[in-house]
Design a protein around this nucleic acid. Structure first.
Lengths: 234, 234
DNA sequence: CGTGCAATTGATCTAACTCAACCAACGTGG
DNA sequence: CCACGTTGGTTGAGTTAGATCAATTGCACG
């Protein structure tokens, strides 16, 4: 764990994620108070571990830059990825009930996260009903996100659905939607989608051959959004 | 939709789910206020539809009796089950963000649900911080529940994990944990777990043959909790 | 007492896994 | 500067878990 505390001039008022994160829909005058919640901003390099299983739950984290994964280690040592967190997305909801985190959270790329103490947030919510609604909205979003990735259906459908999900989420964060960089390796993609890395590779090649996407490593261009939606077939 | 409004003497003070639902951990004196939230108690027969996709979101529902499923219909007409809701569990979180429900919710067995208007709940939370924490806890639980069912691993592991999940959830509601009735058909089980009903049937037969469970239709007895945990291998 | 639905079991087939070879990009140390 | 190992990705060949197709049974219900 090589994360470091930052003294940089980050704040919610000028944050790229303000349209997505806690500040979304809030009055501009309330932003300083929300910004005041942040106990620190943690800078992470690729591979840095933010959270370990059984760490006590005291804070949520908001993704200010970069991308992270939540994951566990299997009884035979294999990694199982549960969630991907992109710009403006909150993580840590799973910790409230048991007061401990059930998984690792690791940076997929160089990232910055804002630490939001649970108790302070609860207090501010009492004073700021709009913030309460926003928290419920963010949690609701997260529920719906997982609904987007069914268990049945073919590997191709799952992969296409995931690409669409990443595309729209990065688009909300300011991306074009059609061009983006995957923050995961093929292996991680495979773990998240419940298939092997070879299958991921083959399916990507197939989408390439069908001219639905153009891919160079982790760089993806969606050539036919229609084609991708059809492949996801939801 | 044959649900009916009830005039029965249901209330939170004497509810079997009080240890699980909104009242959990609340002061006894607060219960009447929580009970006052409930706009109606809906009685459902097996197969009755409580919610349809695109229904406007205005309320959560708490399961007072019975069991329900949330599900969508596939582009080829197949049912996809997303969630199972047992005694004391809240449903509807997915509706907050878009203000509409994204799925059907249907009773699996004769059921009673308590309708909790979102706006009224938000107001009471402002007056009752403990209730706020309880809501977050309930949502957190729901997140962790879905984490319990990974995508990888074998069909057997998924089925065993699901049986364990149902067992512990029904136990929290007052069941023995070792003996319970599945509220789903093999087909529904299959849809939820991402396999076919034939596979479900074969796997159940296998667990029976290995003397890990005894099964008669939907009635299940866990003979070896250790064996079941080992089969789930998490 | 038949009709229909749920469940079980068998026989075959196929999508995805496993094992394996290979390539490209990258960093490190001699 | 080049040899080297390492890591991530692609592709091929053979295998298998689970899907599909199909037949049979049991039970609930009008």
């Amino acid at each position: 764990m090589t994360s470091c505390l930052s003294a940089s001039p980050h704040n919610c008022q000028n944050c790229a994620a303000a349209r997505l994160c806690l500040p979304m829909g809030m009055d501009h005058l309330d932003l300083p108070q929300i910004n005041g919640l942040i106990s620190r901003r943690v800078h992470l390099e690729k591979g840095d571990v933010l959270i370990q299983p059984h760490d006590p739950f005291r804070c949520f984290f908001a993704v200010k830059q970069g991308a992270l994964k939540s994951h566990t280690i299997d009884y035979v040592g294999r990694e199982q990825i549960w969630g991907i967190y992109l710009l403006g997305e909150l993580l840590g909801f799973e910790g409230i009930d048991t007061q401990t985190f059930p998984y690792y959270v690791t940076a997929l790329v160089p990232s910055v996260v804002c630490e939001i103490p649970y108790e302070k947030l609860m207090q501010l919510i009492q004073a700021m009903p709009a913030l309460q609604h926003q928290m419920f909205k963010l949690m609701s979003q997260r529920f719906s996100m997982d609904v987007g990735l069914p268990r049945n259906n073919s590997s191709l459908e799952r992969l296409a659905a995931f690409l669409l999900s990443i595309s729209t989420r990065l688009q909300r964060g300011g991306g074009s939607g059609a061009v983006f960089d995957l923050p995961l390796t093929r292996q991680e993609l495979a773990s998240y989608l419940g298939m092997t890395l070879e299958t991921v590779s083959r399916l990507i090649s197939r989408l390439k051959k069908e001219a639905i996407i153009a891919v160079d490593g982790k760089h993806v261009e969606v050539l036919s959004m229609r084609g991708l939606q059809k492949a996801a077939a939801t």
